[in-house]
Amino acid sequence: MGDYFVLAISCIFVNNILLAQFLGNCPFLGTSKKMETATGMAMAVVFVLVLAGVITWITDTYLLKPLNIEFLRTLSFILIIASLVQFVEMFLKKSMPALYAGLGIFLPLITTNCAVMGVCLININEEYTFMQSVVSSFSYAVGFGLALVLFAGIRERIIIARVPKPLQDTSIGLVTAGMIALSFFAFKGMV
């Protein structure tokens, strides 16, 4: 149990997917202008990432490795993620319209979110067990959400501030992200 806790802390803070591993930066900058969209995106990522982590782990362990076709990993993972996103979208639309209304528009964006694909690959590269993969997928997603929501909070304030013209929008966003990354840097060496 303790090991899982350490793994979770390391995935959420120390190796934060956005700020230390640089994965999923497109939605990080794209959906962080408003708190509302940021939380929506964060929820959608948690949802899809856990599912994708589980399914890709099973595929890799019981299909690719026994058949010795690991070179097809990239291809199969992206197809799994793409179809998973489609499936989740259809499922939510039919059975949970309320949740769909909240997450709906973010789902298609997740296919090309490299955080999802990245975590699935990390799970395999680090040779995690099934439980470890579940914990790491969930914690990475939480870390993603945490950074995204923090960032959105700051960005909402920046809009009010007077920023020099060439620095506006994405440019100041990146510099801000750098500052948040710097604060997350303090977690390094903790685990």
């Binding site: 700020l19 060439p166 620095l167 440019s171 990146l174 510099v175 500052m179 840097f185």
Partner: peptide, 22 residues
């Protein structure tokens, strides 16, 4: 060369491009 530097550096380069583009 660490993570935070990457963000700041890219942000400043973007700013530079905006300046020249103006």
């Amino acid at each position: 060369v660490e993570a935070p530097g990457a963000f700041v550096c890219l942000g400043l380069m973007l700013c530079l491009m905006n300046l020249i583009g103006k």
